[in-house]
Design a protein around this nucleic acid. Structure first.
Lengths: 151, 151
DNA sequence: CATAAATGACACCTCGGGGTATTATTAAGC
DNA sequence: GCTTAATAATACCCCGAGGTGTCATTTATG
């Protein structure tokens, strides 16, 4: 029983992108990303090729290939990353989960919850990879020096 | 692809409790709750018996039985309801989903996200059923007059 | 041009949240 | 005390997010 947190896929995307933000000109290979980010290798691979179809990163095939960020870091927000993985869970909707709620104005929770969602969205919109590069979790990782314990 | 919203189970619990808040002295039967709340009947039954094991509502068995709220409305917050269904997804944790993050202070998102979670938690803690009784979605439902369209 | 080292494509598996079916139990009321 | 109308218990099913396995493709380099 849980939720009200991000999906694994979204989490992984956050990890990957903020990791690659460490050096925006570097070609990262999946093996290394996997090593540092604790994402199941095959699933990571799947997600990387999927992300490569977005505007955020691109891939280089063949030997010495890899993945690189495609845009200036300050132009990639956390919300952009959610978009890239198709996570649109911040669309404001009825707090009680009714598909068509007839009480948009009258129900207390409607306005209360819209405000909450807006504040979340604000944080995710205003936080860009350039900020995470400075003080994100991955700014401290050196390739063979893992700061996060497994599991 | 979604999430960052409540689980169905939590949503249903919100619906059920705010519905029963309409009349805190009434014994509600599952059939009627089902009619008005668009929750699959069997699943609703399951959830009602499960909720009956919490402090929030109790059941009366046998003919003319049903379910009734157990505590004063002002003593039941939305967070209490989440607790009752075992939804603890608001425990603050690492934004990137790392089980053990070594960077509690240093990572930008750590503090940012803790604040977001706190503001959500505040809303859910300060909103009680008494408030929803006044202006919640169910305050407008009369038994045969459904304000919410199906599906 | 053969090999190695990288990504791409695609099919499959697993597990748990959400949902269903069936039978048992409780208690009112004629 | 039989019937009826309610809840309780239990076992099962389904589907999609998350995860795995295998083979194909691309490209650098000796």
């Amino acid at each position: 029983m849980s939720f009200m947190n991000f999906s694994k896929t979204t989490e992984y995307a956050f990890r990957i992108l903020s990791y690659m933000a460490m050096d925006e000109r570097k070609l990262y290979i999946s093996r290394d990303i996997h090593k540092d980010l604790q994402i199941p290798f095959r699933y990571l691979r799947k997600q990387l090729t999927s992300l490569s179809k977005s505007e955020l990163i691109h891939s280089v095939q063949g030997k010495n290939g890899g993945y690189m960020i495609s845009k200036p870091l300050e132009n990639i927000s956390l919300l952009d990353i959610m978009d890239a993985v198709g996570d649109n869970s911040l669309e404001s909707s009825c707090f009680f989960g009714f598909q068509t709620c007839a009480l948009k104005e009258k129900c207390t929770m409607h306005t209360k919850w819209a405000l909450v969602l807006k504040s979340i969205k604000d944080v995710l919109t205003t936080t860009s990879l350039s900020e995470l590069k400075e003080s994100g979790p991955h700014s401290f990782i050196s390739n063979n020096n893992l700061l996060f314990t497994k599991n």
